[in-house]
Design a binder for these strands. Structure first.
Lengths: 119, 119
DNA sequence: GCATATACTTAAGAATCTTATGTATATTTG
DNA sequence: CAAATATACATAAGATTCTTAAGTATATGC
């Protein structure tokens, strides 16, 4: 089967936490594998989060108090659902705002069309 | 004096080459220090390229055949002007297109407003 | 004259991701 | 029903890219 070309990994670097936090804000709770699939589906494979990158990040966010864990057993297999803590909700908002602002700055810097909305 | 808050360095990571290539495409030729100042000015200090990041990148791009060097002496001090090679022009276009596309994908992934233009 | 700005260089370390491997259960398919 | 694939987690070694810091030297402003 055909593997859609991805963005260069340099570009994706640094956006992982923001992606995860925003997804959790929207979906309430998700488990790791689910996150990788959701991102792949929504981007038609152009952004693929590897498990080697995701799991350590989830662990770090948990340790920082941004995420809470909730284990669920599907038969014998464990699933670890992550959700935002109260602090995490704030962090998620901050991160998304920062990324939006950053992308606008990049547009201006590169002399691209400015974007609509949030004037 | 007040130092304007920067974006978190994770976000900026990975966009440096694209920024440099696009600036050179617009300006024809620039030297390293000039690039750092131009980016700082245009972004009101929100993106600051450090010399420790820039110079090694310029050297790498030169080695890859993307940039050409042209030395100029200002009194006794040397300035190294960089400009795009023919290959570099192509690379610059590719990088900018990729970043634009990536930002649109991120907008969609984060359920933000889609951007204007380049439909 | 001294502080600051200009201008380039490079090395050590940190942060983040890729690649690879490991473990194990569940489901699909021939 | 056996084999292949998908689900689901974990982590270590290595690569890449940037930060921090130090070094060198000339030019300019006060």
């Amino acid at each position: 089967m055909y593997i859609c070309p991805m963005y260069s990994s340099e570009l994706i670097k640094g956006t992982l936490k923001t992606i995860v936090l925003n997804l959790l804000k929207e979906q309430g709770k998700m488990y790791g594998y689910e996150i990788t699939q959701k991102v792949k589906d929504k981007t038609s494979g152009k952004i693929q989060i590897t498990e080697g990158a995701l799991y350590p990040t989830l662990h770090a966010l948990e340790k920082q108090g941004v995420l809470d864990i909730e284990k669920q057993y599907i038969g014998k297999r464990v699933r670890k659902y992550y959700k935002l803590t109260e602090q995490g909700k704030t962090t998620a908002d901050e991160r998304v705002t920062e990324l939006t602002d950053f992308m606008n700055t990049m547009r201006y810097l590169l002399d691209l069309e400015p974007k609509l909305g949030n004037a």
